[in-house]
């Protein structure tokens, strides 16, 4: 699998990470090397194997539908880089 510049750019865009020209080239080389190295997995026949997303057969971990008090709004907002007394603030999302 060859990692092209287009792949790096598309992945960077999906990740919301801005790369300048130099960083894009550097990432292309480094990601390319890592992904090349990963090709070794293709030598394993895994056709019959179920993908394993959870390591132990733990299941049905659920809680009861009981309300607990929410936390103070001031605390919710305390780490926000921009906020009012009531809400977080972001640049306008509609034109």
């Amino acid at each position: 699998m060859k990692i092209t510049k287009e792949i790096v750019e598309s992945v960077a865009n999906l990740s919301r990470i801005k790369l300048d020209e130099a960083a894009t080239v550097k990432m292309q080389t480094e990601l390319g090397a890592v992904i090349d190295y990963m090709e070794i997995l293709n030598s394993l026949d895994t056709k019959e194997i179920e993908p394993m997303s959870h390591i132990f057969s733990l299941n049905n971990v659920m809680r009861d539908d009981l309300i607990k008090p929410s936390i103070d709004r001031q605390e919710i907002l305390s780490n926000a880089p921009d906020h009012t007394d009531e809400t977080f603030v972001v640049p306008k999302t509609v034109g």
């Binding site: 992945v11 990432m27 990601l31 992904i35 997995l41 895994t46 194997i49 179920e50 993908p51 394993m52």
Partner: peptide, 24 residues
């Protein structure tokens, strides 16, 4: 970026799913 790549459309099966199989 690596993680985004292995999950992205067209590469998920070859990388992410494959890795879950190897994990198994």
């Amino acid at each position: 970026l690596l993680g985004t790549f292995v999950l992205s459309s067209g590469y998920y099966d070859a990388y992410y799913r494959k890795a879950l199989q190897v994990k198994s």
